[in-house]
Design a binder for these strands. Sequence first.
DNA 1: GGCTATTACGGAAATCGTAACCATG
DNA 2: CATGGTTACGATTTCCGTAATAGCC
Lengths: 289, 289
Amino acid sequence: MELRDLRALVAVVRAGSFTVAATELGYTQSAISQQIAALEQEVGRRLVERRPVRPTAAGARLVEHAARVLLRVDVARSELGAIDASDTELRIAACPLAAPALLSAALRRLRMNRPSLRVTVGSENASTSVTRLAEGSVDLALVEGITAPDNPLLLTEAGLFSSTALVEEPLVVVLPADHPLAGRASLDLGTLSDAPWIVAPGFSPTRRRSGAGGVAYEGDDIVTLLTLVAAGHGSALLPQSARLLDETVSAVPLASPILVHRTEALTLRTVAEPAAACVAELRSLASRP
Amino acid sequence: MELRDLRALVAVVRAGSFTVAATELGYTQSAISQQIAALEQEVGRRLVERRPVRPTAAGARLVEHAARVLLRVDVARSELGAIDASDTELRIAACPLAAPALLSAALRRLRMNRPSLRVTVGSENASTSVTRLAEGSVDLALVEGITAPDNPLLLTEAGLFSSTALVEEPLVVVLPADHPLAGRASLDLGTLSDAPWIVAPGFSPTRRRSGAGGVAYEGDDIVTLLTLVAAGHGSALLPQSARLLDETVSAVPLASPILVHRTEALTLRTVAEPAAACVAELRSLASRP
DNA sequence: GGCTATTACGGAAATCGTAACCATG
DNA sequence: CATGGTTACGATTTCCGTAATAGCC
């Protein structure tokens, strides 16, 4: 069992197709087919069903392990590469809801001290940010999500990255303005258990869809998301600070369960210098609001 | 970068020698030399210094990642193998201080219900137990160590194994009977900060050596350890329940910092049936003392 | 019947072992 | 000078791509 085999398995399962997995990895379909066949022979059981291409139970379990293994290998490579990384560049991946005001303030102070620093900021969701950090295509990731107060987000295994808590703030339930519950002073999730939610992987705070049906929003544009809410397709969970933009939706504080929206800064554990300085600025700004 | 390369690197660094790493892995020295050279070329930096064979800073960091990667790969393979594992055998690795009375009681009850079950118990230290669980040569590991109350031992990344807390009990400092502090009702570690400790990796609760010099005990026999303590080579930290056997040593409860001796049962997350039953017995016995 | 995975086969590349070489303690 | 890591080189194996084949919607 080699990393090449695990890469192939993960790509095939994620893509649901040998062909597209092959092109992603730069092989022919034939090569992928042979790799999967060899891996299945080695472990002595079928890992993916064909047509449709779906992981078996064993395959799914192996993919869970393999994904973590490959992530850590990427991190290891990136840490080695970061030893002699550029000191004049800082590449950031920021989730849409990850304290944008804090980031811009930190960057302003950072650029005053180092006018020659080249800064790039990209907007990514949390899981893409983690991937980009691991593969070394960004130096710093600002990620966010829902968690219990003072608890880390745990987007990956603890300790894989160096993580700094920046902001925790209350959550609000965003409803159509004319929703019967829109006037409440606060809401429990229990009250809303049967109500539809908009599933939006680009916004980590959004809840999982409970039953069948419903609307999923794959993008990361908050205007679109709020428009969907206003149109009555469902509710969304957002941090209190999210700007609602107009009166077609309204926000009700979430009272129970006790959860917060948390923003963290992630870097490799061997930090490039500009990224470390940026984290220091972020932390100092976050600690005195 | 493939698993084969990481295996070679880890073996070389652990062994401190290309030659013995090669025999461990079933290669010739030449092959290992080529593998390390290729890996160093790939990452573009030296990973081990030769003569003596020592990891560079980058190499040491890569070994940390590689060790976790290889452990997880072993776990993945073992989980796949455990799907069709024997239901008539139960192989256990137990640390010497990991609640032996509890284990024997659980085994008695287990064997009453399943007379045909073949049980093997081996004595291993915590890190070897983890390795054996990962590589699939045991089904259940009883490990122990020092931790804050109600905190897991974290011998590996959280979630790699399924872990069940069994017992937490107070710690005692074991001193020579004629030691000036032996009469105390309790002790703080601060009081002992300059005193020598016996380093005994076979007994996880033992503390790290503070300065230079001192005695290390590599075995796992408690009689020998206590003899060393009695002879004045240093102190040891042990769980309260450890049997001291005679009056040449005496035990003083540890008052601060607030730490406990904790025993946990570890299994693969896809548990073989007899191991699951044994964990259930252990848990039920541990909960009503 | 078209799309997609599998199988057959040949060539290229990687890998390992033997053996000679070299460096270091 | 001897132990142990490196280098050279050839044989074996592995791996991938092309192309033909087979299975499923």
